[in-house]
């Protein structure tokens, strides 16, 4: 029972948001709440911080009291999504060194070959075509600047 409650997404997210609300409120204590000329920078955050704590506690209480059962989660799907996100995040970070086109090609390759389980050759072809296509549209035709890396493109 108690284990179920802890696994419940509503209770967990409620707890996280309550903590965020407390953080917002505590942070706002450092600033002026009401200055000489009117409300200060702490005025607004203090109020929505408190509101956030109240509402998230309400969410937790109603969930626990109603014993709302969370729907069964397809953890395999979640894992797939998180892997895809991790690939996205790593490629985004690598843009600092590799520049947009190399990173984007790698991202495309991994998305096609691993997330969608296509043959690696298909992945490589799509990756190169996509990167080239983006190059033609953005920097070439529209002269939009994209991140450049150590290679200078």
């Amino acid at each position: 029972m108690s284990k179920d409650i802890l696994r419940n997404g509503d209770v967990l997210s409620g707890a996280v948001l309550a903590a965020l609300g407390v953080y917002i409120f505590m942070e706002s204590r450092h600033w002026v709440y009401y200055g000489d000329d009117g409300p200060g920078p702490a005025f607004f955050p203090a109020w929505y911080g408190v509101a956030m704590v109240v509402l998230s506690l309400a969410l937790m209480v109603t969930t626990i009291r109603n014993r709302t059962k969370a729907e069964a989660t397809d953890w395999a799907g979640v894992r797939r999504a998180l892997v895809a996100w991790a690939v996205f995040a790593i490629c985004a970070a690598s843009m600092f060194w590799l520049g947009f086109f190399v990173s984007f090609a790698i991202l495309t390759f991994f998305t096609v070959a691993y997330v969608f389980r296509q043959p690696p050759l298909t992945g490589a072809i799509i990756a190169i075509c996509a990167a080239a296509g983006f190059y033609v549209v953005f920097p070439f035709a529209l002269s939009v600047q994209l991140p450049t890396g150590v290679f200078g493109f």
Binding site: A92, F100, F104, T111, A130, F138
Partner: peptide, 16 residues
């Protein structure tokens, strides 16, 4: 598997 990389690419360009 072609559409999603394009969406991600456009999202990256748009944010940058």
């Amino acid at each position: 598997h072609i559409l999603f990389p394009i969406i991600l690419g456009i999202a990256l360009v748009g944010a940058y």
